[in-house]
Design a binder for these strands. Structure first.
Lengths: 331, 331
DNA sequence: TACCGTAGCGCAATCGATTGCGCGATGGGA
DNA sequence: TCCCATCGCGCAATCGATTGCGCTACGGTA
């Protein structure tokens, strides 16, 4: 049941040496005479000894564990990000604990607090509601943080999308097809960082002579339901848009479904463009035109930055991952 | 930088009491005089003290962390399972570390070993290649294990699908539509537990007078690519099947794409049926008929069983989650 | 006055590792 | 023969909590 587990002193006794020697055999940090080394290894094998990493962490102050704090791991985008992060951390023998916040500020804070309590070695976070000062405690504890988001507190390492060019191309494409009124299903209102994707579309619309009036910007969560709801709202306007840009593919898929229910023909009645290019985007019909953001690569990049930081890198880094317009059947 | 963090003895000094008292104020396990209690609380607040859970774990031998060991968190099925598990563990303040094995036996063993090294409080695992004795070390360490799989080592808690009825209905439905030759895209060959889903289809085919010849059973991984490849193999047989059952939805989607490329009409030339009902299943066109397995619920059930075990439940439990046939457009 | 139960608190051992420091043995050079 | 550098090893402190045990003070009862 609650087996007494084998400790280093058990091994030491069995091998006829001190725990010091056992420790050094295991870590290889100091030379040990061949006969003792072998005696230790034999004892380790026979007793089935396993280093207790909790005790090790207490002593060394390194837990070899990092946290990934995201709104929802069941969202394929974050699942992909998680995978990238984990694959990057694995070779260094780091574990990743996944934390779902449901895009709730209280949960974000709770998890951040947990990180310092548990003395984790680092955090990758896609914050939804956090202000720079919310990171003070983590920073004070000396715990490295990498933010994965379009924008974040200016002092932390950041991995973001560089969608400038792709959005410009997307809008140019829509303009070429004769669209004049653009609508947008944007992210939630009140986010501390504003809504960078909305700003990109706004600027691009200006450049290409499209109209993106305030009345055609709908705020909502990053979900299918919100996308569907948003589309219905947009299409019930006096002057509905002929093209809609969506903050991500989930909302775009929701919008697609709602449009279908309304009997709208895509793309002839209405063009839709998503963001991220998650697996679903190429599987729905009509296939979703979107702006591809390499989530897996974003995750592994976060991992790389985190490892660098843990290893002691000093300066801040910011990596902008290039996105790419993928034209399919909804535009 | 590497901030000296505040410990209980710092708090004790500031509050003019012993660490013992601080500990008891924090845990509430012993009565403490109001004035001292307040002094401690004040000191905690002023110093920004946070309990070091590593030290706590060492002392109490509980890490409040469990592992989830699955082939791939980027697979929506497992992502959903993970979410269910996490939601179940969260109220008890447990963390979940997610481990991807890529369905590789060596990785499975490595992670299992890690679990005991890190003295985690429990494991949920969907093993692909593990035999009962591979769990000996974990068992010896007294660490609770819950298996999420169609079948598993008979001695461990198990959460599985009960697809008997649904598969029977699916096959009956195919028979009713006049199908006679059934093919199957099954799981990898050589799994220690055999392939329960294949067996279900085999039995049901017998009952309903369908042919499921050995030549029409293709083994492969649980991926889209394997599904596509498998379909091509099946359709190049002398006598190809008119209906194919797939081990899960990912392979079914792969098969669907391959069928489309071959110019096959679904469902008139070929019927397809999947398993799990992941989000994609209802989004592809034609929409995939499938057998719905509630992955989220499976995850939360695993969490519940794990918590019971941690709390001391003795007997083994096995939960069979009822699956349900969902007929859409591929049959 | 003597005795005893109880509430409040602290000492010190303990969990299982890591590591600075120093000690003894060995051997090469003068 | 003597000295000192080098190698191998162990003692004991330390990381930051938890908790068994025992001590003091206080108040009620006989």
């Amino acid at each position: 049941m609650d087996q007494q587990s084998v400790t280093m002193s058990d091994v030491a006794r069995a091998a006829g040496v001190s725990v010091t020697t056992v420790s050094y055999v295991l870590s290889g940090k100091r030379a040990v005479a061949p006969d003792k080394r072998e005696a230790v290894q034999k004892a380790v094998a026979e007793l089935g000894f396993r280093l207790n990493t909790v005790a090790q962490s207490l002593r060394t102050k390194r837990s070899r564990t990092v946290a990934l704090i995201v709104p929802d791991i069941a969202n394929p985008f974050y699942a992909q990000l998680a995978r990238g992060l984990q694959d990057a951390m694995r070779p260094e023998r780091y574990h990743v604990v996944v934390c779902n916040t449901n895009a709730d500020r209280a949960e974000e804070l709770l998890y951040l607090d947990d990180v310092v309590r548990r003395r984790l070695d680092g955090v990758v976070i896609t914050p939804q509601w956090l202000a720079p000062e919310d990171f003070d405690a983590v920073r004070a504890a000396g715990i490295p943080v990498v933010v994965s988001s379009d924008t974040g507190p200016g002092s932390l390492d950041l991995v973001r999308a560089d969608s400038h060019e792709a959005v410009d191309q997307a809008v140019a494409h829509l303009a070429r097809q004769g669209h004049e009124r653009l609508g947008m299903l944007a992210g939630p209102a009140g986010a501390p960082a504003g809504d960078p994707r909305l700003e990109l579309y706004r600027a691009a619309a200006g450049r290409h002579g499209l109209d993106l009036p305030a009345g055609l910007i709908v705020r909502g969560k990053h979900t299918r339901e919100a996308g569907a709801e948003g589309l219905r709202r947009l299409m019930s306007r006096k002057k509905p848009p002929t093209a809609i840009a969506c903050v991500n593919d989930r909302t775009a898929v929701g919008a697609l479904e709602a449009a279908e229910q309304l009997g709208l023909a895509i793309p002839s009645d209405l063009a839709l463009i998503g963001h991220d290019d998650i697996e679903i985007a190429s599987l729905v019909r009509p296939r979703l035109s979107t702006i591809r953001y390499p989530a897996y690569e974003a995750g592994s990049t976060c991992g790389r930055l985190l490892l660098e930081r843990i290893a002691g890198r000093a300066g801040r880094s910011e990596v902008a991952l290039r996105t790419r317009l993928v034209l399919r059947e909804t535009t």
